[in-house]
Amino acid sequence: MFGSMQRGVNAYAKVGLETSVISASPHKLIVMLYDGALAAIKSAATHMAAGNIVEKGAAVSKALDIINNGLRASLDKKAGGEIASNLDALYVYMTERLLTASLQNKTALLDEVQTLLTDLRDAWTQIGEKPVQPAAMSHYPVMASA
């Protein structure tokens, strides 16, 4: 009885997530990636503390996937220059720390990566999506109407 209700809830959540992704701006997608990685790390810590090895591994793998195939893959090193290169190196460092945390069951390393991701997420959120103000457009020539 509850199994079918849970499947329904999961299906509803999946549709909600897919709708959010489709309608999200690129800026919001990055925030969603940070949120997903943070949730996976929190889950890994919970499973690590409970001794659930399989679930811990799955949660760490999810965090690694988000960091490497989401956050790192979205970096534009040509346009981003030194900042993008530094972020890439930081994501590599996080990957190494997560792997070590998983292999050695060290929650302190999970906490370290969580702190780094939280700081990056907060900075990214503060940047926000600031619309271009009309005054900022004043230096562009105005097209005369015929």
Rank of each mutant, 00 (worst) to 15 (best):
M1P: 12
Q6T: 07
Q6G: 06
R7S: 14
A11R: 10
A11F: 02
Y12L: 15
K14R: 13
V15R: 13
E18H: 05
E18G: 03
T19Q: 06
V21K: 15
V21I: 13
I22A: 14
I22L: 15
S23L: 04
S25K: 04
P26E: 03
H27P: 08
H27G: 09
K28Y: 09
M32H: 07
Y34V: 08
D35H: 01
G36L: 10
A39D: 10
A39I: 05
K42I: 03
A44H: 12
T46F: 08
H47S: 12
H47V: 03
H47R: 10
N52K: 11
I53N: 11
I53Q: 13
E55V: 05
K56F: 05
A59W: 00
V60R: 04
V60P: 03
S61W: 04
K62V: 08
A63N: 05
I66G: 05
N68D: 11
N69I: 08
N69F: 09
N69C: 11
R72M: 15
S74L: 09
D76R: 10
K77G: 11
G80W: 00
G81N: 02
A84K: 00
L87T: 01
L87F: 08
L90A: 12
L90S: 04
Y93T: 04
M94F: 00
T95S: 01
E96F: 01
R97H: 02
L98A: 04
T100G: 00
T100P: 01
Q104L: 06
A108F: 01
L109T: 01
V113K: 02
V113A: 08
V113P: 05
L117N: 04
R121I: 03
R121N: 05
T125Q: 15
Q126I: 05
Q126M: 09
Q126E: 15
E129N: 11
K130V: 14
K130E: 12
P131V: 00
Q133H: 13
A136N: 11
M137T: 08
M137C: 11
M137E: 08
S138P: 00
H139P: 05
H139K: 08
P141N: 09
V142Y: 12
V142H: 14
A144E: 15
A144P: 07
A144S: 13
S145C: 04
